[in-house]
């Protein structure tokens, strides 16, 4: 055998070896961070009088559903009686409960508990994060309407009190927006607006630096945000309005949704805005006008979101596990799942 052939063989062998070695090297293949990484967290409010609040998980492809993931992963710990909302910060999920007054912090992918916030909470509602701080609305619908601020180590910093309301809270483009008006009732239990304000907290000073007064006379129902805008939905049973607020400047632009009554819930997904009305009609909103999409099936409107082009709608009951219907954007029912009691929210994990 010629030496050149041997060399070629050796070369080829080295090449092969190298290739195989490279194959053995840790290619940054995604290592799973936990069982709940690629899916949706579902908040089940609970029965109020019983500690039945729970969290469910469904995988993105809707193939895997697991209920009670907080209890299961934390030696059967009780979450609470009224589970209000979820917020995310880094690898952590913050589970806000209204009864009892606490926020459970868990790893969002494993759901192992990593901490608890209880200081100065009084019927906590929603949560947002900006910079190092955590902002939590509290509203007992009586004499407490405030935002509590906690630092990066979850220590209490201060409270900001509001006159009438403190409900939804979002963070966008370096500012925190608080829904500071909502619904109240007259003596005959007819709905009335408490007012029409959205307040902005500047995280640099942790003070309110702007109050935006909406220009219609209906009731503020919901507020969400994308990276740079805040969207506010207000309605009564004849008209609905959407406001787009530029988070940086705080300027609001109103769209009157002609002929749309009782819009209640907002969702944002892949840059598109959706809303659901008390008449169980789903609409999309393109920045200037709303387009009716389809009717959803539920006894009344409660938990709602649109995640990766899938529409999640809960059929609320507080005495038994709820059905959640999942539709695609053309209105085909993809799947009906059974979650927990009082399903009130869906969060992309």
């Amino acid at each position: 055998m010629k030496i050149s052939k041997i060399l070629t063989l050796v070369l080829a062998g080295t090449l092969l070896f190298n290739i195989s070695c490279r194959n053995d090297d840790p290619v940054p293949a995604p290592t799973p961070k936990g069982a709940y990484e690629n899916g949706i967290l579902i908040a089940n409010e609970g029965g109020f009088l019983t500690p039945t609040a729970s969290v469910s998980f469904i995988s993105n492809d809707l193939s895997k559903l697991e209920n009670n993931i907080f209890s299961t992963n934390n030696s059967n710990a009780v979450l609470g009686n009224v589970f209000q909302s979820v917020g995310f910060k880094g690898d952590n999920a913050f589970l806000v409960t209204n009864v009892p007054n606490k926020i459970e912090i868990v790893n969002r992918y494993t759901f192992k508990k990593t901490g608890t916030i209880t200081a100065n909470l009084n019927e906590a509602r929603y949560i947002a994060f900006s910079g190092n701080n955590t902002y939590v609305t509290n509203n007992n619908f009586f004499d407490v309407r405030k935002v509590n601020i906690y630092d990066n180590s979850n220590a209490f910093v201060k409270s900001i009190n509001f006159d009438r309301y403190a409900e939804k809270i979002v963070s966008a483009d370096g500012f925190v927006y608080v829904q500071t008006d909502g619904v109240t009732y007259d003596a005959n239990y007819n709905e009335l607006p408490t007012g029409h304000t959205i307040s902005r907290i500047n995280p640099a000073t942790n003070n309110v630096d702007k109050t935006i007064t909406l220009t219609d006379d209906t009731i503020i129902r919901d507020m969400i945000a994308d990276n740079s805008n805040v969207y506010v939905l207000s309605s009564d049973y004849s008209n609905s309005y959407i406001y787009k607020i530029d988070a940086k400047t705080g300027t609001a632009a109103q769209t009157k949704l002609a002929g749309v009554s009782g819009a209640l819930k907002l969702a944002v997904d892949n840059g598109k805005i959706y809303f659901l009305t008390s008449g169980k009609k789903l609409y999309s909103y393109n920045g200037t006008a709303a387009t009716a999409m389809f009717d959803v099936t539920t006894s009344n409107v409660y938990g709602f979101n649109v995640i990766d082009d899938k529409v999640f709608v809960s059929d609320p009951s507080f005495s038994k596990d709820n059905d959640v219907r999942i539709y695609n954007l053309t209105g085909n029912l993809l799947k009906t799942i059974t979650t927990g009691i009082g399903t009130n929210g869906f969060y992309k994990n």
Partner: peptide
């Protein structure tokens, strides 16, 4: 009765 020391 309350279910948690943090409940009202």
């Amino acid at each position: 009765p309350i279910f948690s020391e943090y409940a009202t």
